[in-house]
Structures are given as structure tokens and as C-alpha cells.
Amino acid sequence: MQSGYYSSAAGMVTQFNRLDTIANNLANVNTVGFKEDNLIVGDFSRLYKEARDELPNANHSEDGAQFLNRAMTKAPQVVDAYTDFSVGNTQKTDNSLDFALSREGLFFLVKTPQGVRLTRDGSFTKDDEGRLVTKSGYEVLPNDYFEAGGNIAISNDENIIKVDKSGQMYKNIPNSVKLIPGSHLFIAQPDNVALLKKEGDNLYRYDGTADLKSLDGTEAVLQGFVEKSNVNAVNMMTQMIETNRLVGMYQKAMDTQMNDMNRDAIEKLAKKA
């Protein structure tokens, strides 16, 4: 069995997965609030060595480890994936309904048909019913949502909207410039951002959403700004070039295994015959 061929094939599949991740990052380089995804590449042999004594199958023991085909199990493969939640650069928009969060790990809460979700995309707008919503139409939630429900409503007469750094909103009295307190944005901080799952539309699913508490003193809300993607386009292009070269190397190794070595073996056997 030509184990080198299978190891090369496994390595090529790993690099294809890396290319998919890199391409997705580059496609969202201008997406507001987008967070970069990354893959961790390892090999089965190392993972097996760490966990073999805990496996229930008796054959998966330290003695049985000596029968492993080391050439195949050392093939690189994706062992984990993670999202980089570092804060991206902020861009001034002067739109009173645009908001950015200047601290890592903080999120706005929005209501979707699938339930409450988290987002870093603070480019909000007002729908036909006067509710504060995301560009995809999801309602932005107030800090007392889990106790009282409701939404954040802005009437047509309230044409002056101010929001402080803690997320407290102030609106003008109709036909006046005097400001009074209004709703308060729900700013959440999950205990472990590694548990967040991307769902598209710049949303994250978090299984402990109902237990989240609104942070009223974050001093992190910036009105009139949006947070840009934290993807570094130059780094991504460098990684793409590197990955493409690795794909070419694995392809060459596979070609050598299947063609050159087989042809050499056939020629030698023919001479002996």
C-alpha cells in the first residue's frame, strides 16, 4: 500500500479547507463587525497519543499503539477551528443609528425568527413601524427584554437621538429639543466567547442567551461609528499564496507516488521477467 499517497491526499484536503476559510475571510473584509475565522492543523498521531488511555476500547491501549501505521496517522488535518474576536478598526459615519463597541467580548442582542442572537454589527436603522432594527430587519433589544419584553421604538417626532457610552438612549420631547431618557441598548458579555456559533447575517448563537445580563456601565458604545472587520487582507492574501503552494506540493507528491514510482516498479519487474 502506498501510504505516502494517502498522506498527501489527506494533506491536500486540509489545505482545501484552509482555502475555504481564507476565501470566506477575504469575502467579508468589508463586512461591518465581521470576525476572522482560523483553523488549527495537527495530526492524528499526536491526538491519539494524548487520548488513547481514556478510550473505552481495550484495543486502543498503549500496547496497541505500536501497530499504528505511523506514515498515515501523521498526515496533517484540521483538528480545531476558532474565531478571532479582537476589536476591528472603527469608522466614523455620523449616522446617529450607527454604533460600535470599543471593547472585545461585548455584543448587541437582536431578535430573529430562530430566537435571540448576538452581533457586533451596530449599523442599525428604523423600520416602517418605528422599531430599531438591523440592516437585515432583526429587532434590536432593550436591556430589560428578558424581564419585560418589548423593543426599542423611535417615533417620527423623535428626530434627535443621543446615546451615551453605556448604551443609554436619549430622545427629544416632540416639537422640542429637550432630551429625556429612553430605552437602553442590551449590551451583553458571554462568559466564554468560544461557545459562540456563527449563523450568518453576522449573527452568533449562544446557548446561554437567557442567562445573559445587560451591562449598563460598559463605557464602550460609540455612536456615529461602526466597527470594521478585523480581517487583515494582506495576511489573508499571504496565507492564500502559501496554501496554494502547499496544494501544488501535495499534488506533485501524489503524482510521484502513483505514476513515477509505479512506472519504475513496472519497468524493473519487466526486466527481471
Rank of each mutant, 00 (worst) to 15 (best):
Y5H: 08
Y6M: 00
A9R: 06
N30T: 04
N30Y: 02
V32R: 08
K35A: 01
E36Q: 15
L39Q: 09
F44M: 15
S45I: 02
Y48N: 02
K49I: 13
N57C: 00
N59T: 11
N59L: 13
H60A: 14
E62C: 00
E62N: 10
Q77A: 07
D80G: 03
S86M: 09
Q91P: 02
D94M: 08
D98I: 07
A100V: 07
S102V: 01
E104A: 14
L106G: 10
F107E: 04
F107I: 01
F107Q: 00
P113F: 08
R117D: 05
R117I: 05
R120Y: 01
R131W: 10
E139F: 13
F146R: 08
V163C: 13
Q168R: 10
N175K: 13
K178M: 12
S183V: 00
A194Y: 03
L195S: 12
N202Y: 03
Y206V: 05
G208V: 08
L215F: 09
L215N: 07
T218I: 10
E219D: 15
N230S: 02
V231G: 05
N235W: 07
Q239L: 12
R245G: 12
G248W: 00
M249T: 11
K252P: 00
M254Q: 02
M254L: 09
Q257R: 09
Q257A: 14
M258A: 15
N259K: 13
A265R: 09
K271I: 15
A273Y: 13
